[in-house]
């Protein structure tokens, strides 16, 4: 699969990919943030980049290492709540809390991941559903249990206003960091180890890949960036509640984007985020029915899994190398 993934990716060169990321970032950073007519563009850009950060982060553990996490909302919410609390209670600038929020979520992911990542087959995925939902219920009820005001329970936290321009630049910056990280991991030894685990954990272990350590590290990096996305959300939206930030629907979205965009590819999560952020925004404003997008994305997920395991990235790869597509094995034949 690694061989195939590497071949299919439409950009192979590490340096070239980073240059593309930087060019995209420069264009996005050049959007005037103070003029009113660009407010909507800024809003959509934030949405897409926010999704892309989460999708790219999820892809490190879900796409590279093949360990599907259905509980990433736990890290998103942790990031948002750490930033929200530090900002509200200690008046620390929310953007400065990004690393703290990321480290908090990374620590949480190690505590959760060290035991659960040993599980085989689908059991890690199921355990993460449990972790995500348990975290949400815990955050919702912690005030009630301890009798102290910590998270404000289901009522949520209201936060002061923050300069949207600063959030915009910070989001672009985090996006760049996530993209470069995923590129470097994928093309390096670390990524090779993760793909080896993905293909056959026992064989990887036997050939000297420290599977446990690599998986936990990948999970922690993934959690770190997901929490950064949570922090950015807290800085932009001024309101946090457990149902939104820790909700299972957030975990679902985070899975859908990389899978539909192209599992285990560098640009797949970005395509997924574009589809999700951009298209969903348009559909929702047209129909006002939130379930139509869900129907479409559910169908897309089924079709992608059945017919094009590399998603949008796979389709693009097919188009650019039409000849090679014929010799490419069409389906995994695992024993």
């Amino acid at each position: 699969m690694t061989e195939r993934l590497r071949r299919m990716d439409w950009a192979h060169d590490r340096g070239a990919q980073i240059v593309v990321v930087l060019l995209v970032a420069v264009v996005l950073a050049a959007i005037p943030t103070n003029e009113r007519q660009y407010a909507n563009l800024i809003r959509i850009t934030f949405l897409v980049l926010w999704y892309a950060i989460m999708a790219g982060a999820w892809n490190i553990i879900g796409g590279y290492a093949g360990q599907v996490s259905f509980g990433h909302a736990a890290f998103l919410g942790t990031g948002a709540y750490v930033t929200g609390t530090l900002w509200q209670t200690f008046h620390i600038d929310p953007l400065l809390t990004l690393p703290i929020a990321g480290l908090a979520a990374a620590l949480y992911s190690v505590i959760v991941g060290a035991p659960t990542l040993r599980l085989r087959g689908p059991y890690f995925a199921i355990a993460t559903i449990g972790v995500g939902e348990a975290t949400r219920l815990f955050v919702s009820n912690i005030d009630d249990i301890t009798g102290q005001v910590i998270t404000h329970g289901v009522t949520g936290i209201s936060l002061p206003n923050y300069d949207p321009a600063k959030v915009h630049y910070a989001t672009v910056a985090v996006f760049v960091v996530v993209m470069i990280t995923t590129i470097l991991i994928r093309e390096g030894r670390f990524g090779l180890g993760l793909f080896a685990i993905n293909m056959d954990r026992d064989a990887a272990e036997t050939s000297g890949v420290p599977t446990a350590r690599l998986q936990v590290l990948a999970f922690a990096i993934s959690a770190f960036f997901t929490a950064c996305a949570g922090s950015l959300y807290a800085a932009r939206q001024q309101f946090l509640d457990p149902t939104t930030m820790f909700g299972f629907d957030k975990s679902i979205q985070v899975v859908l984007m990389p899978v539909v965009g192209g599992l285990g590819t560098v640009w797949g999560p970005v395509f997924g985020a574009l589809l999700f952020g951009g298209v969903q925004d348009q559909i929702s404003s047209l129909t006002r029915n939130p379930y139509l997008p869900q129907l479409i994305y559910g169908l897309l997920l089924v079709l992608v899994v059945l017919f094009e395991p590399l998603g949008v990235a796979g389709l693009l790869g097919r188009a650019s190398s039409a000849g090679r597509a014929f010799v490419r094995p069409r389906r995994e034949t695992t024993v």
Binding site: G121, P122, Y291, Q294, L295, V305, T334
Partner: peptide, 23 residues
């Protein structure tokens, strides 16, 4: 195929069923 494939596939099926019932 690998467990992850059927997991994602049936997960998608669940989403479709849920959206369908909601509609």
């Amino acid at each position: 195929a690998a467990p992850i494939v059927s997991l994602l596939l049936l997960f998608g099926t669940w989403l479709v069923m849920q959206a369908f019932a909601n509609l």
